[in-house]
Computed example of a mutant assay.
Amino acid sequence: MTNVYLNGRFLMARQSGVQRVARRIVLALDDLLNEQPDINNKYHLVCPEGEMDISLRSISTIRLPSTGQRFEQASLPRACADGLLVNLANSGPLTHNNSIVMMHDAQVWTTPKSYSPAFRLWYKSVQPLLGRRARKVLTVSAFSADNLMSHGVVETAPTVIHNGVDHILDAAPEPDVLDRLGVTSRSYIFAFASAQPHKNTRLLLDLAKFSDAPEIVLAGDLPDNASPTENIIRTGKISDGALRTLYENALCFALPSLTEGFGLPAGEAMTCDCPVLAAKAGALTEIYSQAAIMLDPHNPKDWLSAIQGLANNPKERQALIDKGRKRAATLTWARAAETLRRIIGETLEADTAQRAAKAS
């Protein structure tokens, strides 16, 4: 029986989109293995020391007494030396040659100002090495695959596994968040704010300045020196249940990013029957153009016009909801896990064939 190890460092990192993707794929893979056991391979989640808030049935867990880079670059490769190592959160050990790595985007190269100098230096040093040493590189969109190729991070085209977006339905709605924020159903636009320049929060702040702009509910951090108008409502830290409620009750969701490797929040919104306005940028066009209103990320007037169109035309809004629901139904974590399991199986079958050829 062959050992398949999953790099569990994502459990100890701040839960950004990358860590959420890794967690959800592992959970979906565990469900798949529970329903369809793998009699040839044994799966293990290898974790650093510390609290571990993930419950698995078919994937065993291995705890190592280290954290951070020491865990990933020293303890992890030693513990996984006898098997295939799968890294789902951009990074992995440089000394483990029998590995698969998922790189979510190339934004350290395309939008360097969104990251600290230390982060840029580390990623620009490590990712090309991982890309060359990994047996297979995965990513989340054709756009990200092209960017990773064009910046020399990988030499051959990565295999695309689209993210799932159905996790948002696991959280029970929390309707009291509307009263807490002082908003009513269909009266506001929902969006995420970020200090990272490529998230383009400035467009939302400019949109709010129009006299006929609706209230805009923002989750996340504002850019430095931002001066939000009175119709900007900050959520503060919110739970997944509150997030679901805000999607379900918004007039629409706005995602004006200048680039995205996938754009997970747009899919979450579609899952919650919330119509989506998205920028014509990055992977957003590839993933969502058939189910969202696609707009110029530099023109807030276009966004206001689209918002007013949805507010004044319920049939148009409902048609967009229907398209979004249909698109979201194709983006599931179960499908992502099935694809990952197939890729792992193909990689291990290649090993078996190679050993058989050497023996003959």
Rank of each mutant, 00 (worst) to 15 (best):
T229P: 04
T229F: 00
E230C: 03
N231K: 14
N231T: 07
N231D: 00
I232C: 05
I232W: 13
I232Q: 02
R234M: 15
T235D: 08
G236R: 14
G236F: 13
K237D: 12
I238E: 11
I238S: 14
S239V: 12
S239I: 14
D240H: 15
D240S: 14
G241V: 10
G241R: 08
A242D: 12
L243V: 03
R244I: 10
R244Q: 13
T245K: 06
L246V: 12
L246W: 12
A250M: 07
A250H: 07
L251E: 07
C252G: 02
C252Y: 11
A254I: 15
A254T: 06
A254F: 04
L255M: 15
L255A: 14
S257H: 11
L258V: 01
L258E: 07
E260C: 12
G261Q: 04
G263R: 05
G263I: 06
L264E: 05
L264F: 08
G267Y: 12
G267E: 07
G267H: 10
G267S: 05
A269D: 06
A269V: 03
A269M: 13
A269N: 11
M270I: 04
M270A: 08
T271G: 04
T271I: 06
C272G: 04
C272E: 02
C274M: 02
C274V: 07
C274R: 04
P275A: 01
V276A: 00
V276M: 07
A278N: 05
A278D: 06
A278E: 04
A279R: 02
A279I: 01
A279S: 15
K280C: 04
A281N: 05
A283E: 07
A283T: 10
A283V: 01
L284Y: 10
L284H: 05
E286Q: 11
E286C: 06
E286A: 09
I287S: 03
I287M: 08
I287V: 15
Y288Q: 01
Y288R: 08
Y288N: 09
S289Y: 01
S289G: 00
Q290K: 14
Q290M: 05
Q290A: 15
Q290F: 00
Q290E: 15
A291T: 06
A291F: 09
A292C: 12
A292H: 08
I293N: 02
I293D: 06
M294G: 04
M294N: 10
P297K: 01
P297G: 03
P297S: 02
H298W: 09
H298I: 00
P300Q: 01
P300C: 07
K301A: 14
D302W: 03
D302C: 13
W303M: 08
W303Q: 05
L304Q: 12
L304K: 07
L304S: 08
S305T: 15
S305D: 15
A306Q: 10
A306S: 14
A306M: 03
Q308M: 11
G309I: 00
G309L: 07
L310N: 06
L310Q: 09
L310K: 07
A311V: 01
N312I: 03
N312F: 05
N312C: 12
N312G: 14
N313A: 11
P314D: 03
K315H: 08
E316L: 15
E316F: 06
R317I: 08
Q318H: 12
A319Y: 02
A319S: 12
L320S: 01
I321P: 04
I321F: 01
D322Y: 01
K323G: 00
K323W: 02
G324P: 06
R325D: 00
R325K: 15
K326G: 00
K326N: 14
R327V: 00
R327N: 14
R327Q: 15
R327F: 04
